[in-house]
Write a protein that binds this DNA or RNA. Structure first.
Lengths: 224, 224
DNA sequence: CCAAAAGTGTTTCCAATACACCCATGC
DNA sequence: GCATGGGTGTATTGGAAACACTTTTGG
């Protein structure tokens, strides 16, 4: 029922952090943005970009700020995932993490090397390095959410550049679902949903029939 | 990325609470359990049962404890919903609430009057009294989740007693979805899913054809 | 015999699936 | 002309939705 006093400092309670699971697709692999910790009990392990929630910002704002500060990424699909609060999730002290998940199109900021003295890199979700805290669990949770959402929303738009081929789009589905899909049925469904429209352009210079370029008719999250 | 110090007290941050949206169905209405606040800035308003998360318990444990302490209810479907963290959500100070939603079968503890000096009552979700904090928003969010989940899981089991008629079950769906459903199609679907099985008993003493009693074949959350 | 809710089948339609070949280009 | 990926259509199936009458009981 909220808190019991004027000040939130009187009562002993968990610290509140946000962590962001930022996905992209590169070379037909689902990647997640991770930072290598270079001090503390988790030194050498990798962690999601995250940080404490400030006293005057909302959870969404905190997640947005953290992504911008740590990965220089703004204006993307960002959605609250789940809150993790096992008392043992951080050996340094009691904390609750509100996890977010976010998607960015392929090549944007693909090469990040260090920031704040931390190594920062896109890691293959199916081959994670040793993880700090409960961040492996958080990533697995995010991956499940992504897999579910690609089926009944148009979030795929946030993983592709403005213009793309239907094969590009199909690859996104295949990587996230972890299985192949039938080309004809896929195109039939996508086109009948009206998610995308032709740009009129094609890709040239490849040793095969040029592919048409499409764009998303709407770049907002939509349930289908 | 967690917290920065050994103690979670050094840093100024939000308090962490859990609030539980507890639903039941009574007289063909969806009801939510609320408590009337009798002091503080929200005096006279109604609020969800909730409380601060203790330093040594997980979020799930906190939710379970709060429901048990405030409503004397245990052993039910309980699921994390969403975390609410608008800096203005509680005028008394900064707090983050991790909301849970839970379902109880119809008559269990239906009559609750006061507890800890608070009036406590089941209120019609479609006709809420003046609410404290952002609890109206939380309830609306929970209602949407419930509506979605009844479609693709068997959670309905947690709203009905051990034995029930197919009409009872249909009423649950109708109340939650807010619309009528076709009796023949409903029975066809439910029976073909194998969610329920006949008990062999019937209801007697009503001035019409006696209804068969069913039970759920599984009393665990299942996706269908 | 009447009121009331229980129970039951068929048809229609659409969406999902399975499946194989021709097309346009670069080299 | 050949290798490469782009692009297309049809038949089948299963589930969802629409729809109305008979059955069993208590009073």
């Amino acid at each position: 029922m909220g808190i019991d006093n004027k000040s939130s400092k009187i009562i002993e309670g968990p610290a509140v952090a946000v962590d962001a699971v930022l996905f992209t697709i590169h070379k037909e692999q689902l990647k997640v943005l991770l930072m290598k910790l270079n001090q503390g009990p988790y030194q050498g392990k990798w962690a999601l970009p995250g940080g404490l929630v400030q006293i005057d910002e909302s959870l969404d704002e905190a997640a947005k700020r953290v992504l911008f500060q740590k990965a220089n990424i703004g204006d993307i699909h960002l959605e609250q995932l789940y809150s993790f609060g096992d008392p043992k999730r951080d050996v340094r002290g009691r904390s609750v993490s509100v996890a977010y998940f976010a998607l960015v199109p392929n090549p944007r900021n693909f090469e990040l090397k260090t920031l704040y003295n931390n190594e920062i890199a896109w890691q293959d979700v199916n081959n994670l390095p040793p993880m700090a805290f409960d961040h492996k669990e958080i990533i697995e949770y995010a991956q499940k959410r992504l897999e579910a959402k690609i089926e009944y929303t148009n979030i795929a738009y946030s993983l592709l550049p403005k213009e793309f081929t239907l094969t590009d789009l199909q690859k996104v589905y295949e990587v996230i679902l972890g299985r192949e899909v039938d080309k004809r049925n896929f195109r039939k469904r996508i086109l009948s949903l009206g998610l995308v429209e032709e740009t009129g352009k094609t890709i040239k210079g490849e040793p095969h029939r040029p592919a048409k370029l499409y764009r998303f008719s709407e770049r907002e999250l939509k349930f289908i």
